[in-house]
């Protein structure tokens, strides 16, 4: 047994990393300024709490530069936080007027912005948007809706989580067996996907025969696969859009493999 007295060290002043990002940049002389004892401004400097005639004024010691930094950044964050709060309040006040970006119907266009259509494709596009605008009305059905997702095709998009889209506007019966749908799309151009799928316990048995163009003369999209991920209990919709695929709206039916009965739809819009 060792008789020497046990050495006890004081608890460390901190128990986590110091991430003082506010000091990442320093101007000329600022490094010196952070040292409190040696870096005080010269006595002739008024900001060094020296009176204009050079007499130090100890009663009004300035904040150390570390304090100055903290106060400055805190002030800035207070300003932006207050601004965001005011913005949210203003948005809530405006929301009933249907201003885009200010409420739950942020993506919904007002009726005045509806696009006039003289082709079938435009009619369908307009219809889709109309249903999108009804999204808030179906908020009560959120739990019963099959989740839809839209994924912007991105270069090397690994690591980017799919972005959830507003739920399908179509009403559904309540079902706790709801499985989310994930869309994986490979497209050189902007593409928007809507998956309309009822709550289904038969997700592993779903299939689609591809997506057909609404415009005449466009080849169908055949590289479309529905894959059920049992571990995550979700359906993955994989779509590959050839670079030569003409822009437009494509749609297809999701069917049950066993009964061939229709279960839902997939709609894909390819921008120019």
């Amino acid at each position: 047994m060792n008789d020497r007295p046990r050495i006890r060290r004081k608890d460390p002043a901190r128990d986590g990393p110091v991430r003082d990002w506010s000091n990442m940049f320093r101007g000329p002389g600022a490094t010196a300024a952070t040292a409190p004892s040696t870096d005080a401004p010269p006595p002739s400097s008024p900001t060094g709490n020296t009176s204009p005639i050079g007499v130090p004024d100890d009663s009004a010691a300035p904040p150390a530069f570390d304090d100055e930094a903290r106060i400055g950044i805190e002030t800035a964050y207070q300003v932006i936080d207050q601004h965001l709060r005011e913005g949210r309040l203003a948005a809530q006040a405006q929301a009933p007027r249907g201003t885009p970006g200010t409420g739950p119907s942020a993506t919904a266009p007002p009726a005045a912005m509806s696009i006039s259509s003289d082709t079938i494709q435009q009619v369908v596009t307009q219809g889709l948007r109309f249903y999108s605008s009804l999204t808030p009305l179906w908020a009560a059905f959120l739990k019963s809706l099959a989740a839809s997702t839209v994924v912007r095709d991105m270069p090397a998009a690994a690591g980017l989580a799919p972005v959830p889209l507003a739920p399908s506007p179509f009403p559904r019966a309540a079902a706790d067996s709801l499985a989310p749908v994930i869309v994986e799309i490979a497209s050189a151009r902007m593409a928007r996907v809507t998956v309309d799928l009822p709550p289904s316990t038969g997700a592993p048995n779903l299939a689609t025969g591809g997506l057909l163009a609404l415009a005449p003369g466009h080849a169908p999209l055949t590289d479309v696969a529905l894959v059920f991920d049992p571990a995550a209990n979700r359906l993955v919709v994989r779509i590959r859009v050839p670079d030569t695929q003409p822009p437009g709206v494509y749609s297809g039916v999701i069917v049950d493999r066993g009964s061939a009965a229709p279960r839902g739809t997939i709609t894909l819009r390819i921008d120019e």
Binding site: N23, M24, A30, P41, S45, P46, T47, F65, E68
Partner: peptide, 21 residues
């Protein structure tokens, strides 16, 4: 005389740190 220019420079650098964050 009142260190206003260097004060603002320091302020800007710290805001830049917050911007990076």
């Amino acid at each position: 005389r009142y260190d206003c220019v260097e004060y603002a420079r320091r302020f800007a650098h710290r805001l830049a740190g917050a911007a990076l964050h």
